[in-house]
């Protein structure tokens, strides 16, 4: 699934480690989400969307 996580993180000047810390997950999880290798669960997707003040639909694109 495509997403805007990397762009939004870089806009804010956060490293993967900093974002991981804000979400209480590992840096590897952030890397896997950003590269589209892992689709987060609904609770984690909501946490990400809230952190970036967006809706889940704006943050993630299922790319049908």
């Amino acid at each position: 699934m495509n997403n805007q996580v990397r762009a939004l993180r870089e806009e804010r000047g956060w490293s993967q480690g900093e974002l991981a810390e804000r979400l209480a997950v590992s840096r590897q999880t952030i890397h896997a989400i950003e590269t589209g290798k892992y689709d987060p669960s609904l609770p984690l997707a909501f946490k990400l969307a809230r952190l970036f003040s967006m809706s889940i639909e704006q943050l993630f694109d299922p790319g049908e």
């Binding site: 997950v25 590992s26 999880t29």
Partner: peptide, 8 residues
């Protein structure tokens, strides 16, 4: 196992 994040 219970404390790590969902991907791990």
């Amino acid at each position: 196992l219970r404390e790590i994040d969902e991907l791990q």
